[in-house]
Each structure stands twice: as structure tokens, then as C-alpha cells.
Simulated scan of single mutants.
Amino acid sequence: MGGLFSAPGSFWAWIGYIFDPLCGPAGVFTWFGQSTILACGDAGWGDEIALGLKTTVAVALLTLPVGLIIGFFVALGQQSEERSVRLASGIYTTIFRGLPELLTLFIIYYGLQILIQSVLTSFGYEQRVEINAFVAGMIALSVVFSAYCAEVLLSAFRAIPRGQYEAGYALGLHQGRTLGLIVLPQLIRIALPGLTNLWMILLKDTSYVSIIGLADILRQTGVAVRVTKQAFFFYIIACGLYLALAVISSIGLSYIERWAKRSGVRR
């Protein structure tokens, strides 16, 4: 079985190396960091910081779709005709928008372990259970992101005239097809500016996962600071990486917004 997965694993490791912006063949540290403290390999801290960058990006990219999906259904719940569903959705957004992100992370990281351990103990399983820090961080950021996302999507839902729904029903479309074909394209265009702001906030919030031991940018630079005692230098590197992610995100999101506006005009 190990041989079966070794080839795909080596392939993805090779892909990760090729496209590594810091320590890959065309990486910044590979070209400009050799013979310095940022050299890749055993000679410097380049590999460690590159790993932190990959972890930060992975947490953010995996959190985004999960948070969007949860936020979408919570926003639908807030518009439900069922009072209990509206109440539950409102409580969800109030809790996770009101709690500090760090506290939410601690509650999920430690509380989820306690909950799972209690359930397993009731079935006679006594061994200690530990939650993966990456999974816990992603869940915590997802629920916080989804709470804010739900409010943005709710505002977008309310900005769509009721006549749009009635037009779909008049064409013989059921509620699901009306939502998917008529409402959803408009919802995306209206909510996109707010969602882009939430993405930028999410990028910064990924730094919280360093508290539970996940090797993101902030944790890796923190380890380098403790070993080398060059705090200012490495924290400037961390600033540069976060700002680079923000600039790249801004360029990509600007393109998406222009594409959405063109799509709206064509319709």
C-alpha cells in the first residue's frame, strides 16, 4: 500500500517544489537569499518560512468554500418563514460574530476534543483523542467567516426585488431552479464587494492558528526569532509575505469583480 501512494505523493511534492515562490527553482529565497539567513536548506530559514506560507495559504483556501457554504445556508435560514429556523440562524451569527476569533479557536480546539472524548468514553474507548490543529483551525475560522458571510449574503438577498422570484415562478420554475438560475447570479454580483473584504480579513485571521501550534507564517517566523534573536528582521519578512498575499488577492479579486460586472451587462 505504501508503494501505491508513494508515486502520487512524490509527484505532488515535486509540484509543490516547482511552484514554491520562496524556495522553488524560481523562488525569491533561492535567487536572492543564498549565503544569508534566509537560504533554503540546512543553511538558513528559507524552507521553514516557505512551509509557513504554504500552511497559511492552505488554511485560507480551504476555509473559504466551507465558510461560504455554511454562510449561504445560514442566510437562507434567516429568511425562512419558519420562526425557529430564523431564530437559530440569528443565534448562530450573533454568537460567532460576538466572540473573539481567538476564543472561538480555543473553544473548538479544546472543546471538540473533550466532546469527542466523552462520546468515545461512553462507548468504552478510553484512549486519549487529539484533534488535528489544521482541522481545528479551519473549523474555527470557517464558523467565524460564515457568520459574517451570512450577514453579507442576507443583505444581498434583501437587495434583490421580490419580482425576480415571482418572474421565475411565472415561468414555471420551482423554488430551487429560481434560486439557482435567477437569484444566485444577482446575489453573487451584489455580495462580491463585501465578500472580498471578508477574504482579506480571513487572510489576516489565519495568524491565529499559530497559537495552537500550526506551522503558519507567524509561528515559523516566531521560531526563527527565538533561535536567531533577530526579531525585527523576521517579523518584517512576515509583514512582507502577508502584504504580498494581500496584493495578489486584490489583483485577483479586482479581475473577478470586473468579470461579474461584464456578465451582469450581458444578461
Rank of each mutant, 00 (worst) to 15 (best):
T121A: 15
Y165W: 15
K261P: 00
R128D: 11
G264T: 13
F72H: 09
A133E: 15
S142N: 03
Y235E: 05
A191T: 00
V66P: 00
L173H: 09
L141M: 09
F157K: 00
I201M: 12
W259L: 15
Y17H: 14
I91T: 11
I108M: 08
L173M: 14
P25I: 03
T206F: 07
S210D: 10
W14C: 09
F134Q: 00
W12E: 01
V223S: 06
I190R: 05
K54T: 07
I251Y: 12
I211W: 11
L64E: 01
I160Q: 02
L253T: 05
F32E: 04
G46T: 06
V183Y: 04
G46C: 06
Q127G: 10
G180A: 12
I217Q: 08
T30M: 04
A260G: 02
E81H: 12
W45S: 00
S80P: 11
G90I: 11
I201D: 06
S10F: 14
I236D: 07
T55I: 15
L103Q: 06
V85Y: 10
R189L: 01
Q79W: 04
L76E: 11
M138S: 06
D47I: 05
S263D: 07
C239W: 14
L4H: 04
W31D: 07
W259G: 03
T206Q: 05
E130D: 13
E126R: 14
R262C: 00
Y255H: 12
L203G: 02
L53C: 03
R86T: 06
Y109G: 01
W45N: 02
A170C: 10
A39D: 12
L181G: 02
V59D: 06
T221M: 09
K261M: 07
S249F: 14
Q186M: 01
E151H: 00
L153Q: 02
V227S: 09
F32T: 07
Y255C: 08
R177A: 11
A238S: 14
G41K: 02
Q220V: 01
L76D: 03
P100W: 03
S146D: 05
E48H: 14
W259I: 11
I160W: 06
R226T: 13
G111V: 12
W14K: 11
R83P: 04
Y235F: 15
E126F: 10
T56G: 08
P100I: 10
A39Q: 09
K54D: 02
F234H: 04
G172L: 09
G176Y: 15
Q127N: 14
G46H: 11
A26V: 12
Y242P: 05
G163M: 14
W259D: 09
L245K: 06
E82H: 14
L68R: 05
A246R: 07
S6E: 10
A231W: 09
I160E: 03
G71F: 01
